[in-house]
């Protein structure tokens, strides 16, 4: 995978049922963050698997002043990659149950 210096992990155990899940975005290069957030290393947030799109959350982070507009695509992609993996794991678990 291309190295964006951003990594999204689950911030809680996935029970496979809830549509809203806690995620944590790790920022390897703090220079990606804006102003007063430069000393930060991670952003925790909830993501609704049914109602939300990763790019929308990335845009909210930019609008909240966390990231530069130029990083919106990289942030969105990092969230999308993790969300795809969560969905894939859930689908696989469901088909195993059947």
């Amino acid at each position: 995978a291309e190295d964006t210096g951003l990594r999204v992990e689950l911030a809680e155990e996935d029970d496979g049922k809830k549509s809203s899940i806690a995620l944590k975005l790790w920022i390897e290069d703090p220079r990606k963050l804006k102003g007063k957030y430069r000393e930060s290393g991670a952003i925790e947030f909830t993501f609704d698997l049914e109602k939300e799109v990763p790019e929308g959350v990335a845009q909210e982070m930019v609008e909240s002043g966390l990231f530069q507009e130029s990083d919106v695509k990289a942030v969105g992609k990092s969230i999308r990659d993790r969300v795809s993996l969560i969905r894939w794991r859930r689908e696989r678990a469901m088909s195993a149950e059947e």
């Binding site: 703090p30 957030y37 000393e39 930060s40 290393g41 991670a42 952003i43 925790e44 947030f45 909830t46 959350v57 909210e60 982070m61 609008e63 909240s64 002043g65 966390l66």
Partner: peptide, 27 residues
Amino acid sequence: SAIAQVVHSAGRRFIVSPVPESRLREQ
């Protein structure tokens, strides 16, 4: 300044955590 900040955006909360000390030492 090792305190998490909470940023609110349209009903969502972003919890911004500081860099762990172990990582600060590496930099």
